[in-house]
Design a protein around this nucleic acid. Structure first.
Length: 426
RNA sequence: GGAGAGGUGGCCGAGCGGUUGAAGGCGCACGCUUGGAAAGCGUGUGUAGGCUAAUCCCCUACCGAGGGUUCGAAUCCCUCCCUCUCCGCCA
């Protein structure tokens, strides 16, 4: 969430910046400033009275000890208590309103986030590699996978419903190989520590990273327990340090975590209904960093290269896109998407999203740092990026490495993970 | 799931209705001492909010969380969460 002090002092500037996300985004800002002023007034009144109450109560204690009558003072405190309740009630209500309003305002886009209303106005930063030259009509991953017997969508529908898949035989092995390859790369070459967190999390965690309260409809929630299935490992991993103060010398803290991810995909009916591009359940290796504020934009560039390294090793053509303000996620200040080439769709598809959340998540989750030589604790900046989405990587490998006969050539770096196997065929 | 014990500052640990934001110890920081170090001595050492030019003062809140009783609660009562021990169940 945003800093109320910043809003108090620079409301006008924030107003313009927020509205880059879309008209009306900043509409609550003025009301917020009002609430804040009223809240502080009520707080002041209550605190002054509490101070008086404390003094008088101590006085009562003294009198009683001396065996004297303190009825008058006690009556006075009772009176003060009534007034305190009144001001506290006001302050609490205003505080609550302030908090909910604040929780529903997104992060401020970075100055380096381009203007634009939707994805058509995202800015292409660079391309890597080349499209595969296929001298035959490319099939899509679904045709390939089903023909090879490595993807079973039909039975997935039977056991779970739409937007689920069963990976079978060589397919299951390939998926597992991709996950392990990604984890190994990030932990051995890029300095991330591996974390294997729970996929069921509580409400506080989802508030910390910004999925709640605004996006509850995107999540799977348990019926009998106050727990949600995570939509991304970002949630448990970022909240790993919730309410903590990290020593400055430990930064940057870097984690790589493989988890299942679960998304209801509400409101995306009709989109990507074919194949495994958009699933209710998918696998992802997520990279999360906690960094010193002044380094966060450099750390973002760095994070993107870590995600890119997977695609490069696998020889997959992709491009890097800087999301425009209108396409930016709720908690992010700046996001680079990695889009991998899919021959069957003749287009680039998102396979990773790398974001700098500045202090927005850190303020919600109270993740701070403190330097050795004293001073106040300061909010860290948090970042995360997919490194990468395994299901979509599976799609990319199938489609880009397909052969005329429908078999799949396995990229060399993956072969050790598949018992040296070079090809998936019937 | 059942029975019992317990959750106090970075850590250990006292307090069980008033002067306790919290004794004492450890740790840490700075200073004195020293050729240097240890020991010793001294000082300091939580977080949030308010006030403020201020990370100085001052005020308010916080002893797992939330309610309640009381003039006054870390201390009493209720609910919940978590940890530990035993039993049950279980991959």
């Amino acid at each position: 969430m945003l800093d109320i002090k910043l809003i108090r002092e620079q409301g006008e500037r924030l107003h313009n910046q927020l509205n880059r996300r879309g008209p009306g985004t900043a509409q609550d800002l003025d009301r917020l400033i009002e609430i804040d002023a009223e809240r502080r007034e009520a707080l002041n009144k209550s605190q002054t009275l509490k101070n008086k109450k404390k003094t008088l109560s101590a006085e009562v204690g003294k009198l009683k000890k001396q065996g004297e009558n303190a009825d008058a003072l006690m009556a006075e405190v009772k009176q003060i208590n009534a007034e305190i309740d009144e001001w506290d009630g006001k302050a609490d209500a205003l505080d609550e309103e302030l908090r909910t309003t604040l929780l529903n305002i997104p992060n401020i886009p970075s100055d380096t986030t381009p203007d634009g209303a939707d994805e058509s106005q995202n800015e292409e930063i660079r391309k890597w590699g080349e499209k595969p030259s296929l001298d035959f009509e490319p099939k899509n991953h679904l045709e390939l996978g089903e023909a090879l017997g490595i993807l079973d969508m039909k039975r997935a529908v039977k056991i779970s419903g739409a937007r689920f898949a069963v990976f079978r035989g060589q397919g299951a092995a390939l998926l597992r190989a991709l996950i392990q390859f990604m984890l190994d790369t990030q932990t051995r070459e890029n300095g991330y520590e591996e974390l294997y967190p729970p996929v069921l999390v509580n409400e506080d965690s989802l508030k910390g990273t910004g999925q709640l309260p605004k996006f509850e409809e995107d999540l799977f929630k348990l019926r009998d327990d106050e727990l949600f299935l995570i939509p991304t490992a970002e949630v448990p991993v970022t909240n790993y340090h919730r309410d903590e103060i990290l020593p400055e010398e430990s930064l940057p803290v870097k984690y790589a975590a493989y988890t299942l991810c679960f998304r209801r995909e509400a409101g995306s009916y009709g989109k990507d209904t074919q194949g495994i591009i958009r699933q209710h359940q998918f696998d992802k290796v997520e990279l999360v960093k906690f960094v010193k504020p002044e380094t966060s934009y450099d750390e973002l560039e760095n994070l993107v290269t870590h995600a890119e390294s997977i695609l490069q090793k696998l020889g997959l053509h992709y491009r890097v896109v800087n999301l425009c303000a209108g396409d930016l996620g709720f908690s992010a200040a700046k996001t680079y998407d990695l889009e991998v080439w899919l021959p069957s769709q003749n287009t680039y598809r998102e396979i990773s999203s790398c974001s700098n959340f500045t202090d927005y998540q850190a303020r919600r989750a109270m993740i701070r740092t403190k330097s050795k030589d004293g001073g106040k604790p300061e909010l860290v900046h948090t970042l995360n990026g997919s490194g990468l989405a395994a299901g979509r990587l599976f799609v990319a490998v199938l489609e880009n490495y397909q052969q005329a006969d429908g078999s799949i050539q396995i990229p060399a770096p993956l072969q050790p993970y598949l018992n040296g196997k070079e090809r998936i065929s019937k």
